[in-house]
Simulated assay, not measured.
Amino acid sequence: MEEIREIFCRFSVQRPEPKGELEHVNPFTLVVAVALSAQATDAGVNKATRALFAVADTPQKMLDLGEERVRDLIKTIGLYRNKAKNVIALSRRLVDEFGGEVPRSREELVTLPGVGRKTANVVLSMAFGEPTLAVDTHVFRIGNRLRIAPGNTPDEVEQAFLRIIPEDYLFHAHHWLILHGRYCCKARKPECERCVIADLCRSLEKTCDIPAPLVELPAQIA
Rank of each mutant, 00 (worst) to 15 (best):
I4C: 03
M126G: 00
D72A: 15
P27G: 05
S203C: 07
V55W: 02
I221C: 02
G100R: 13
E2I: 11
A54H: 13
E193A: 15
F53I: 05
T153L: 05
E6Q: 15
N152F: 01
G116E: 08
R202H: 15
L79W: 06
K75C: 14
R5P: 03
G114N: 10
V122D: 05
E97V: 09
E3C: 00
V157I: 07
L217S: 12
R92N: 10
A160K: 02
A222D: 09
P103N: 11
N46F: 07
T119F: 02
L179H: 09
C208L: 07
L30E: 04
M126A: 13
Q159T: 02
A127G: 04
Q159A: 09
A160G: 08
D64A: 12
L79G: 05
L179P: 06
R117H: 11
E167Y: 01
A48P: 05
R15H: 01
A120W: 02
R81I: 09
E97T: 07
I197M: 08
A212W: 02
L65V: 14
L94K: 08
F53A: 04
A127M: 07
N86T: 08
D96R: 13
A89C: 06
Y183T: 08
L90T: 06
E6P: 05
I74C: 03
T111C: 06
K186G: 01
E167H: 03
R106S: 09
D64E: 15
I77R: 06
E2Q: 12
A84E: 05
I4F: 01
E108A: 15
N26T: 08
P113Y: 06
V196D: 02
D209R: 14
E17V: 12
D96W: 09
V115N: 11
R194F: 05
L22Y: 03
R50E: 10
